[in-house]
Design a protein around this nucleic acid. Sequence first.
DNA 1: CACTACTTACCGATCGTTCAGTAAAACTAT
DNA 2: ATAGTTTTACTGAACGATCGGTAAGTAGTG
Lengths: 212, 212
Amino acid sequence: MKHEATPETQAPTGGGNGRSGRAAYDLPAVLDIAVVAFNDYGYDATSMGLLAERLGTSKSAVYYHVSGKEDLLRLALERALGGLEGILTLPGAIEGPAEDRLRFVLRGAVQVLVDDLPYVTLLLRLRGNTEIERNALERRRAFDHQVAQLVDQARADGSLRADVDSRTITLLLFGMINSIVEWYKPGGALTPAQLADDVISVAFDGLHRPTA
Amino acid sequence: MKHEATPETQAPTGGGNGRSGRAAYDLPAVLDIAVVAFNDYGYDATSMGLLAERLGTSKSAVYYHVSGKEDLLRLALERALGGLEGILTLPGAIEGPAEDRLRFVLRGAVQVLVDDLPYVTLLLRLRGNTEIERNALERRRAFDHQVAQLVDQARADGSLRADVDSRTITLLLFGMINSIVEWYKPGGALTPAQLADDVISVAFDGLHRPTA
DNA sequence: CACTACTTACCGATCGTTCAGTAAAACTAT
DNA sequence: ATAGTTTTACTGAACGATCGGTAAGTAGTG
């Protein structure tokens, strides 16, 4: 029989602990390691043995904290999606002119993307092989759709250009923003706030000089 | 329960072929099937058995035409990289003002991307697990670097805005263009030429109305 | 006959996962 | 305080499945 009782989130003991009896790591710790590894090698190419190795323990020890490989994926995707979906519930995304709300959501997306970089990276690289992945892709599409509606409203207000298809604009916009996970390295000269400013600026005003 | 295999494949030899003894497919045919499958499931998650199934034959039969799984990857990446690198050798990429050359290269990139969609898609999703992948990533970085230099020159000419870091601009630009492989479906209402126009237009002029 | 294009059968390696056993910490009763 | 019990966190070995790849044999063709 399998214990469905998930062990309480016990903080890993800070000091040196004995060989056994007390946790050297917990589920969140495993998750952090797993997400990084999934991004490094891809989900399928990452073995549970590698995760155990990176945690400095055995494969079966990992299974004491985690119910399986897919469960790690599910938890990671939940965190990424929760962060993104949370943006749309904030006042800045609900009140005010459509263009302002669009700017707010895009800025928020960049923020979440940077804050939970490895988690969102994992989400953006899904292929939809399993039911879990397809479910996450569905939620991601729903988020994209909400932003697409903001684009439509801003266009209807006359804030945005109408000579390019609305769907194309939205997809290119997301392509630009989502690509951040492929190259942004936190801790560098480019701060998250500055990055968000740059993204908004380039997206709305383009590459040309501001005063053409 | 698996996905439907495509039983009938085009015979490369013009002569009539029997049930056996004559070629039912050749290396390019296997490559086409393989690249699509690699994109569907990811390279690691795609088994040689699945490729055989989609070709309507056995695993060993595939190995008669192909030296191995990695070889398929290598050939596919060669095609994608060759197409992209070819753009930079054309006159439009060498002669004229920097901004015009940048526009030419970006338009060409969109064209190659659409023409060899599955091949470029595969390239853009690499993780660098093996030596072959790392080699391809290196060549892709070299291409990106050449385009980045065009951006720098256009900035120096005063054609492009200088208030956003040059590297950031280049990466966001590629993010936008490369994202096309994730959503563009050939044969739809949006033609490759129109797509290229839209990309160039959005990239240079932004989301705002042309006459702000 | 030789050659091409396969076939069936199989190999060793690796995968995710499970299981029985165990040492130490935590809890309980005395 | 101490003995006994339970719980926690693990170890090491093994499981069945699947992987990429191979060996050997063979039907059809020139």
